[in-house]
């Protein structure tokens, strides 16, 4: 296997939790915030802008130190550990690529910081994973939006992070590119087995990708559940309102020949299993 450098379970029994975090940033406050992130899963944090999603990511990777409370990695308190020691990969909303380095320089950066002797090979493998073979020597300035995003993802996974954080990774990409990137993100998560936390304001993105969706509002968790449960059993009025633009359609996978449209995303849909389809209510027309 070409991807054997991404060993699954390097940190087996790893779990990540935020324990009674209190923090404030300007007029925004978060009090007694707690969250458990299960290992190896794809977790989405969804909520309106300004609800504290990005701050949460920064607290997880150490760029922001919480005023009180603890960040625990496998029971170890890492609250005061600087970001460079945590081994958490973060894909920034703005990509934050290093303009003075080429693509390979960007992707191997994390490995070089760890004096990894296999830096180049591992970086190339990460580039293969995001389908950017042959881009090693390209300048950052010459890349398209989608290519930049993929370099950012490759850079964040190349050093085999214990946790991969995605800050609105599909923002600013055009519609068809977003769909392709969704598939790529899912694939990356499955092939590397890394625990992923993605921040988004869009249920369109959270729903198909996630094992767990956390709906946040004003620094609080409104509900944390499987994606379909968020729609079927909204826990609070806020969640009900936040999801009110969508309708969930439940169906069953048909026999061998029946291939539901969203098959490609729900890769494990076997005959007889339940299939949930999310539709935007505004995208529905009635006819005769």
């Amino acid at each position: 296997m070409q991807l054997n450098i991404f060993q699954k379970g390097r940190f087996s029994k790893m779990s990540y939790s935020l324990e009674r975090i209190s923090h404030s940033l300007g007029s925004w406050h978060m009090t007694d915030f707690s969250l458990e992130i299960p290992e190896g899963k794809f977790v989405s944090i969804a909520g309106p802008s300004g609800c504290g999603k990005t701050t949460l990511l920064k607290i997880l990777c150490g760029l922001e130190e919480p005023a009180s409370g603890r960040v625990l990695f496998s029971g170890t308190d890492v609250s005061n550990m600087p970001p460079e020691k945590r081994g958490v990969g973060l894909v920034f909303q703005s990509d934050a690529l290093f303009g003075h380095m080429d693509v390979l320089g960007n992707v191997s950066f994390g490995l070089e910081m760890r004096s990894d002797s296999e830096a180049k090979n591992k970086a190339l493998a990460a580039l293969r994973l995001v389908r950017l073979e042959g881009f090693e020597k390209r300048e950052i300035a010459g890349l398209s939006g989608g290519e930049r995003k993929r370099v950012a993802i490759a850079r964040a996974i190349a050093f085999n992070p214990v946790l991969l954080l995605l800050d609105e990774p599909l923002n600013g990409l055009d519609a068809s590119l977003r769909e392709k990137m969704k598939l790529l993100l899912k694939e990356v998560q499955q092939k590397t087995g890394t625990t992923v936390v993605m921040v988004t304001h869009d249920m369109d993105e959270a729903f198909p990708l996630s094992d767990l969706v956390v709906v946040m509002n004003a620094g609080k968790v409104e509900q944390a559940a499987k994606p379909e449960e968020i729609f079927l059993f909204p826990a609070t009025d806020f969640v009900k309102d936040f999801t009110s633009d969508y309708a969930l359609v439940e169906s069953k996978a048909a026999g061998k020949s029946g291939k539901p449209a969203q098959q490609s995303l729900s890769a494990s849909a076997k005959s007889g299993s339940r299939i949930y389809t999310l539709i935007k209510k505004n995208n529905v027309r009635t006819g005769k």
């Binding site: 760029l63 600087p82 970001p83 990969g89 934050a96 690529l97």
Partner: peptide, 23 residues
């Protein structure tokens, strides 16, 4: 210098001095 690029370097394992010398 992009502030996010500096944060990115930190999460990738660059110490404050490495941020200075590499970014």
């Amino acid at each position: 210098v992009d502030a996010a690029a500096i944060d990115a370097a930190r999460t990738l394992g660059a110490s404050p001095f490495a941020v200075l010398s590499k970014i």
